[in-house]
């Protein structure tokens, strides 16, 4: 998971703003010139760069495109309209540029390969759409929702979440209800996926990072894609699909740093203990130092 905006006091706000604008323009330029598969490969490369994407506005564009752009449809157009795609929604962030995919998407839907999520063309590029099943529960009891939402546990987790992201009580409570509604809306149309403790932290962080830069429906579509792709293995009813990945973490550690792996085994923290579980299933948003300040 990326870091928040840099707060180096040596760098003036204007310099930061300029840097942010340059980066956004760069994304804009590459996005306009490369075919979708190449553009997405470039996006992945940017994510792996030391220092990451640096700005939430940049993350909003790149995360959105990595999650929602459909590569197969890329050849139709190489020149998206910057007014349509990077239109400066900027709900309350005051930042230079933002994305507006959800608001721009209209009509012309098609089917995704393995889900009920549909896609639509935006400026010649195909985007995934938000789940078509509306969330009817509002901010309250959730109504007659499918059991895969695990409402009791979700409620418990939501009530004790987002402390470190939103110090203001009122804003934190609003954000909690938003995170809850995002999770419930996405899960309610995917009964094969289940809420797990930790998912609320992931969705909370995604909302925190890109929520001010993308329309609500785009955010819903992004969370939906995360659940159905990146976090699919963790959303199963049981832990079986997770366990293989966790064993893989220890194996990777053994290859990269055999001394550390040996030390962990000596401390009886071998692969069977799943020591990496909280980090893996929460995309490293669940940090020990933050859990127990």
């Amino acid at each position: 998971m990326g870091k928040k905006k840099s707060h180096n006091p040596q760098v003036s706000l204007n310099t930061q703003d300029r840097k942010e604008r340059v980066l956004l323009n760069e994304v804009d330029r590459v996005r306009a010139t490369l075919p979708t598969p190449a553009y997405l490969a470039w996006c992945r490369q940017q994510c792996r760069k030391r220092g990451g994407l640096e700005f939430d506005s940049v993350r909003a564009v790149i995360w959105r495109d990595l999650l929602l752009l459909i590569p197969q449809a890329s050849s139709t157009s190489l020149t998206p309209s910057s007014s349509g795609v990077f239109s400066g929604v900027n709900n309350n962030s005051g930042r230079a540029s933002s994305v507006n995919a959800g608001a721009s998407i209209a009509g012309n839907s098609s089917s995704n390969s393995n889900t009920t999520t549909t896609s639509s063309t935006v400026s010649g590029r195909h985007f995934m759409l938000a789940p078509s099943v509306p969330y009817a529960g509002g901010t309250g009891d959730g109504g007659a929702l499918s059991p895969n939402c695990h409402l009791t546990v979700l409620d418990c987790d939501i009530k004790r979440s987002l402390w470190h992201l939103y110090p203001n009580d009122t804003i934190r409570e609003e954000k909690r209800q938003l995170v809850k509604s995002l999770i419930m809306r996405c899960l309610s149309h995917r009964p094969q996926l289940h809420y797990y403790q930790g998912l609320h932290e992931v969705v909370g962080f995604v909302e925190y990072t890109v929520g001010a830069h993308v329309p609500r429906e785009t955010l819903v579509a992004m969370v939906d894609q995360l659940l159905s792709q990146h976090f699919y293995a963790f959303c199963h009813q049981n832990m079986k699909s997770c366990e293989g990945i966790l064993h893989g973490v220890h194996f990777a550690l053994k290859v990269q740093c055999p001394e550390l792996a040996a030390m962990l085994e000596e401390l009886q923290l071998g692969p069977g203990t799943h020591f990496a579980l909280p980090w893996v299933i929460t995309w490293f948003t669940h940090h020990l130092a933050e859990s127990h300040p």
């Binding site: 418990c156 402390w163 403790q197 930790g198 579980l277 909280p278 933050e290 300040p293």
Partner: peptide
């Protein structure tokens, strides 16, 4: 006592 204790993920 930490009033803003978050949910435990997996185990601690």
């Amino acid at each position: 006592f930490i009033p803003n204790q978050e949910a435990t993920i997996g185990a601690s």
